[in-house]
Nucleic acid binder design. Structure first.
Lengths: 210, 210
DNA sequence: TAGATTGTTAATCGATTAACAATC
DNA sequence: TAGATTGTTAATCGATTAACAATC
């Protein structure tokens, strides 16, 4: 096992490995070689072995990888078994949709509270998740210590809310607003920029065959 | 202007350039140099100039770039002025949220119809967008020729619906399901894999300081 | 004119792929 | 045992950065 900084390229491939291994696992597949996994994922076997070697030795010569084992290992690397606590900031349409559809538990996150200013929502439960007024944030942090905040607020308030959450001790933002928020050093941000992906698609369609 | 294949890395940066230039434009900034734009975006001036050189010469020595002009050029490269037609397949929570919140017009897309199986939704309008039964798809394509389909359906039906839309002549998928759909050659897919970004965040938090 | 900044070529750096000895 | 497949080292390829002549 090589011990050096894991590149962003590798990190961004990990969830995809997990997704494919989880699928194989659910289908009851027991073992897989780097070549056949590569064929499925449309990447080289070399890349898979090189990527995995950043984290350890999970295979066996002449056999390949045990699907259940490798799935668990990558899940562990991704922190799926850490049972992090997550809160949703902004229970509008998008926040609402995530509460209704997104399976936080499947990726090891526990969601039990959302925060919103709307009097109509405060005190209600959406799919088992209680909606609270932001003034309760401080008390909530003191008691539950959430590590990740889902930012589904209007973009003009994104930065100031982020600042507040950083102060309360949040460690990561899952940012759905269309602006990039700036956070101090030990805090991470992962952006879901809808516009960017749609524009990439627009580019590809517009330049078809070029 | 170099004439060669534009790399994926460059393509994926274009929407971000557009976002920053649009912001500067709205703030009334008239000109910007590659260095100051690079400072804002946290990338090198070299990279900006190298990236832009794939598409033409948009700057002026000693001056920099005219913000309005460069914004328009990149918008054009991205196909923002093509006024593509988009349809939403699946008007559940997420499809609903997109109809209510997402400004398709701002990126040059025209949305006027969604398709869903639910009898409660068919015939209604959501934020000015009419919901139709999938049986109307064929007629709708014949009349309007939409180029992009937003896939916000349950994942187990994603592939079969995609196949159907490909057959009708769709050219791109904005895929929000958690599965990768396979499409024939001239059709493009851009995935918004929520799970992947959340897992990346989970990884970073779990490996903090390593 | 002098200073600033471009577009492009060359140098560097990093990521992907190929090759292969080790071994199940 | 023979065949298969790993983990890792070396080779290649591509992307980023640096440098600089051209010129506004």
């Amino acid at each position: 096992m090589k011990k050096q900084k894991v590149s962003d390229a590798v990190i961004h491939r990990l969830p995809r490995y997990y997704r494919y291994l989880d699928d194989l696992f659910n289908k009851g597949v027991v073992r897989i070689s780097s070549h056949s996994l590569g064929d499925k994922m449309d990447i080289t076997a070399s890349q898979i072995r090189q990527d995995l070697s950043c984290f350890g030795e999970f295979g066996q010569q002449g056999y390949g990888y045990n699907v259940a084992e490798l799935r668990a290992e990558i899940g562990h690397i991704l922190g799926i078994d850490k049972n992090q606590k997550v809160i949703i900031i902004g229970a509008g349409h998008l926040g609402h949709a995530l509460m209704q559809n997104f399976d936080f538990a499947a990726v090891g996150f526990h969601l039990d509270s959302a925060f919103d200013l709307s009097p109509d929502l405060i005190g209600t439960e959406i799919n088992g998740v209680k909606v609270r007024h932001p003034s309760e944030l401080e008390g909530y942090f003191a008691e539950h210590h959430p590590t990740v905040a889902v930012l589904t607020v209007p973009q003009h308030v994104a930065q100031s809310i982020a600042d507040h959450l950083v102060q309360l001790g949040i460690r990561g933002f899952w940012n759905f607003t269309n602006v990039e928020i700036s956070v101090p050093e030990p805090v991470f941000t992962e952006n879901v920029h809808f516009v960017d992906t749609l524009l990439t698609l627009s580019y590809r369609i517009s330049h078809q065959g070029q």
